[in-house]
Computed example of a mutant assay.
Amino acid sequence: MSSDLLETTKYIIHLDIYAEGVIEKSDVIGAVFGQSEGLLGDNLDLRELQKTGRVGRIDVNISSKEGKSTGTVLIPSSLDKVETAILAAALETIDRIGPCMAKIKVDKISDVRAEKRKQIIDRAQKILKTMFKNEFLESDKIIDAVRQAVRIEEISEYGASRLPAGPHVKDSDAIIIVEGRSDVLNLLKYGIKNTVAVEGTNVPKDVIDLSKTKITTAFLDGDRGGELILKELLQTADID
């Protein structure tokens, strides 16, 4: 079905053709106009309907094999549903095409507007899945970038060793000792701002001294490095 038919009609009449002999497109067109003439009166005369644009160009597709012909006919209609059905039924009365006995049967009448609505729905779904999805992803990237920038900006440095720390590590009554800068960032993500990182397995004096003035919790990895840091903290710092 061509796109121009979809744009100018309400319905498409689909006809199947069978002929006892070899026929051509011109034979089919002649039979459609000739045998329907006067059958339904002036209001549904096919020639007049085509002149006034209420019926579009008739599309015929015919093939022949072993002395028989089969094919299809598409007739675009701007008539209402009832008139289109009457016209389709009238075309089934055609019993001869060219010199051959023939049969024409209505395969279906498709609603072009329904097809357009389906196209709109399908396209809208694709837009939602692709274009809007990409925008959401882009927005997520922007949000993540802003959050990351805020977290980085909130990281402070503590002591002579300039250890990565949360902005509240000096003022808070309690602190959390972590291993590295990334741990400070991760906890800032969840609003925990009283952390300080030891930055290695050797616990800095700044952390040892700080632990003796505040309620101190060690939040370390469970690997070999974390175990070594915890062991040293228990020996040198005041861990609650």
Rank of each mutant, 00 (worst) to 15 (best):
N43H: 15
E37A: 15
S78R: 10
V32E: 10
V178W: 04
N186K: 11
P99G: 11
V207K: 01
T52P: 02
D140L: 15
R147P: 01
V55G: 00
D223I: 01
E154W: 03
D107Y: 12
E7K: 15
V184Y: 00
E179G: 02
G21P: 06
S2T: 06
D140R: 15
K105H: 14
T70P: 02
A237I: 02
I152K: 15
D59V: 08
I192T: 07
F136R: 14
K81F: 08
L79K: 12
K10P: 03
K10G: 07
F33D: 12
T216R: 03
T93R: 14
M101A: 13
D111L: 03
P204W: 06
I177N: 02
K51H: 10
G67A: 12
E115L: 06
I104F: 06
R181N: 11
S2L: 13
T70M: 14
R117E: 11
A85K: 14
V112H: 01
L87W: 09
S63C: 12
L234K: 13
D111E: 01
D238A: 04
A149Y: 06
F219W: 13
I109F: 08
T72K: 14
S156D: 15
G159S: 05
E83H: 11
K25A: 10
R117W: 09
N43V: 09
L233S: 01
R57S: 08
L234I: 01
K126Q: 15
P167T: 06
K214L: 04
A145L: 07
Y158I: 00
K105T: 14
D80H: 06
S26L: 13
I97C: 04
D122L: 05
E135R: 15
L15E: 11
E115G: 04
L185F: 00
L128Q: 10
T84P: 09
D206T: 00
E115C: 01
D95E: 15
I104E: 09
K81P: 02
E66N: 15
A85S: 08
V184A: 11
P76A: 02
I121A: 12
K81W: 06
P164L: 06
R151W: 01
L79W: 14
C100A: 13
G159N: 01
G166D: 11
S110T: 09
L79V: 05
V73E: 14
K81H: 05
V146L: 14
T72D: 11
D171N: 08
E232W: 03
T93I: 04
I176W: 05
T217I: 12
G166M: 09
L79H: 13
F219M: 13
S26F: 10
E20C: 05
K81C: 06
A218N: 02
L15P: 01
D238L: 02
K170A: 10
I23D: 05
K68E: 15
A102M: 05
V203W: 01
R54D: 13
G200P: 00
V203A: 03
Q35V: 00
S78I: 02
I121S: 08
D173E: 13
T84F: 07
V196S: 00
Y18A: 13
D4L: 13
I75L: 14
I239L: 02
D140T: 04
I62Y: 11
E157T: 07
L210P: 00
K68V: 08
E179N: 03
F33P: 06
